[in-house]
Computed example of a mutant assay.
Amino acid sequence: MDQGTLDRARSGDADAFRTLTAPHERELLLHCYRMLGSLTDAEDLLQDTMLAAWRGLPAFEGRSSVRTWLYRIATNRCLNALRAGRRIPPEPVAPFAVPPPTRRGEVTWLQPYADSLLEGLPEHTPGPDARYETQEAVQLAFITALQRMPPRQAATLILRDVLGYPLRDVAAMLDTTETAVKGTLQRARAAAPAASFPASRRSQPDRPANRAGRPELRRAEDEVSRRFAKAFTAGDVDGVVALLTDDAWLRMPPAPHEYHGRDAITAFLRASMSHAAGRGLTLHPTRANAQPAFTASLSGEPAGIIVLTVAGDRMTAITRFHGVRF
């Protein structure tokens, strides 16, 4: 940290403040997204964080890095926002008869996170206790699991197991004790077992081999995605269902309707594809949440984002986000 830049920022130099904070904005946006599950809300909270940092800079004593100080502000701003209550989006009304869902999901505010936002993240080596890599900790299963936890549990898990901050730093950020952090972390880990995160690696020694295997995983994902897009745009319900595991899920935030298993998903797809027939459904490949994805359009109009969760040569989940675009 350049003391001269810090002094100028404290004296009200906006350019100096930007020099201090700009390198951290992209990772802070991701942090807020993990906490909130909504990119729209994360963008708002990032701006709130920067405003709070600007106002609080004269009191910053430099006992921690600027990065750690900003994470403390962002974490507590997110916790304050969650205490005040989430912004629950209105439930969309389908333009066709919707089959009865398997269940009504709780995390209707979930939004996708474009992989383009992961590019250019600063290189920070997580602490030795970090359990997840960046891409693992942005997958939809992980983000959804975080949304189901009490907010302080989620914050503790992120700061400790994703970012790798030492116990003492996490305790300072959350204004609590190391003993309390240990207890909260234990409950968070129990609430989020490894099975919740299909791609998670629970031990450091495995990481090099996993990295080496990523090209093969990516090729498998690309092949499944290609076959999905071909079947989906052709209205081939059987072709889509053939790519699913027996216990696959179909979700459609902000609609709460969720369908579990091939039979339930088949019923929904038949109704949905019948409505879309002849209306020029197109898919354009992209990536979101470190997973294969598509931007959809219907009759030339944006029709949401579809994110696929792939395991081997099958899909374990299809998540179609309505009302969002990249």
Rank of each mutant, 00 (worst) to 15 (best):
Q147K: 04
D161H: 03
G235C: 14
Q153L: 12
R227D: 12
P150L: 07
A188G: 04
P166V: 09
P208Q: 07
G213D: 08
A155L: 05
I158P: 01
I158W: 04
L159I: 02
R152P: 02
T134I: 13
T179S: 15
A141V: 05
M149Y: 00
L140K: 11
R227P: 11
L146M: 13
M149I: 07
A199R: 14
A171K: 02
R168S: 14
D236M: 05
L185K: 04
R218E: 15
E216V: 13
R227S: 13
D175Q: 11
G164N: 08
V170Q: 00
I143Y: 03
F232T: 13
S196W: 11
E136W: 11
A220Q: 15
D238A: 15
R187H: 07
G213F: 09
G239F: 00
N210C: 10
D236Y: 02
T144R: 14
L174M: 07
R152V: 12
K230F: 07
R214V: 12
F228E: 08
A191Y: 02
A145N: 07
L167N: 05
D222C: 14
R214E: 15
Q135K: 09
D222V: 10
A234S: 11
K230D: 15
M173A: 08
A190S: 13
A188M: 00
E221C: 09
G239Q: 09
T176Q: 01
P215I: 08
Q147H: 00
R189E: 09
D222A: 15
R160Q: 06
K230R: 14
R211F: 09
E136D: 08
A188W: 01
E221N: 10
T184I: 06
A155N: 10
P151A: 04
